[in-house]
């Protein structure tokens, strides 16, 4: 197992290099650049200014040199400085990462708890009205785009009913309070989690249905085990293994969805930071975000695979 992990980590390095190269190149091909986004050409003598600023930011160098500088900085533990605000990228990200982790974490928990629960109920009560309505909800949840759901939630709960705040992490200017933070978290976490809930629900349902009819479930009952033990230890223990994999695969989509939700709800996390960086062509921040999310995705894939082997003794890596 240790060798396996080591190999996976080593393989991650060229993957990360590849990702950063590709993104760097694509980002540099975007029309316009950071300086033009900040300085309009109506300004007199804009040309000199633009040239000057670009020189300062290193944008006049050829692309591979710019990439090389970025990598060089990276190896010294420095992610560079934001073009827009001048802050170090590491502090820009560090200030916003906890908010995103909170949002993604809660959304994931909601999705897992609700999705698995509904999927299990749906499968155990197959063909009942409960099953049909959950399945319908599942289709709807997968089909409805995150942003649409987010906007509908804001409209209903914030604007119309006035129950919850429309945006932000907390009430601006007030001292931090957990209940205030949670009130702001509910709508975005639901918007982000609901689509995932539907997907987990469908996978869980399918998996449980398949496992339910397996022979060893019959054996378990034949041994006189109660329904609760049969359901948990024999059915779910097997049925949830593929669901764990699905959860692991969903993490990247959670990242992407978080970006959309953060924009709608002005949730000050790294997703919002990323969108602002893209709009402003803030290359160091873009690269910092891409690197971070690539690392997190690779890590979560690795952890999922390890968990898979922990849960299913038939899977062994060497």
């Amino acid at each position: 197992m240790f060798n396996y992990i080591l190999r996976r980590l080593l393989v991650s390095i060229p993957i990360l290099i590849g990702i950063t190269v590709i993104v760097f190149f694509i980002a540099s091909q975007m029309p316009g650049d950071a300086v033009l986004a900040m300085i309009s050409t109506d300004t007199p003598q804009a040309e000199d200014l633009v040239k000057l600023r670009r020189g300062q930011l290193g944008l006049d160098l050829p692309i591979y040199e710019q990439y090389g500088r970025w990598v060089g900085q990276l190896l010294h533990g420095n992610l560079g400085f934001s073009f827009q605000s001048g802050e170090s990228v590491i502090s820009v990200i560090a200030a916003r990462l906890p908010a995103t982790l909170e949002l993604m974490g809660v959304a994931l928990i909601i999705a897992i708890i609700l999705g698995v629960f509904l999927g299990v109920v749906s499968a155990l009560k197959q063909y009942s009205w409960l099953d049909y309505s959950f399945t319908f909800f599942g289709f709807a949840g997968i089909s409805i785009p995150d942003f649409f759901l987010g906007m509908v939630l804001v409209y209903v709960f914030s604007i119309e009913l006035g129950l919850l705040p429309s945006s932000g992490i907390s009430t601006a200017g007030n001292a931090f309070s957990l209940s205030d933070n949670l009130r702001h978290l509910i709508l975005p976490a639901f918007a982000l989690g609901l689509a995932r809930t539907a997907s987990f629900m469908r996978y869980t349902r399918a998996s449980v249905l398949e496992v339910m009819n397996n022979d060893y479930v019959r054996t378990a009952r034949a041994k006189g085990l109660g329904e609760r033990l049969v359901t948990t230890r024999h059915i779910l223990r097997n049925a949830l293994i593929p669901v764990v994999t699905v959860i692991g695969i969903t993490l990247p989509t959670l990242f992407g969805g978080a970006v959309i939700i953060e924009v709608i709800f002005q949730w000050a996390g790294i997703g919002l930071m990323f969108i602002n960086a893209v709009t402003g062509r803030d290359s160091p921040v873009i690269m910092g975000y891409v690197l971070l999310s690539a690392v997190i995705v690779l890590a979560s894939n690795l952890i999922t695979d390890i968990m898979y082997s922990v849960l299913d003794p038939r899977i062994r890596y060497d």
């Binding site: 429309s166 945006s167 009430t171 924009v263 709800f265 002005q266």
Partner: peptide, 21 residues
Amino acid sequence: RMIYRIFADIPSIMNALSTGE
């Protein structure tokens, strides 16, 4: 006190105005 709340786009500003935030 004066607080400047940061928004990335106009629709959120409209929402925040109408809810009194």
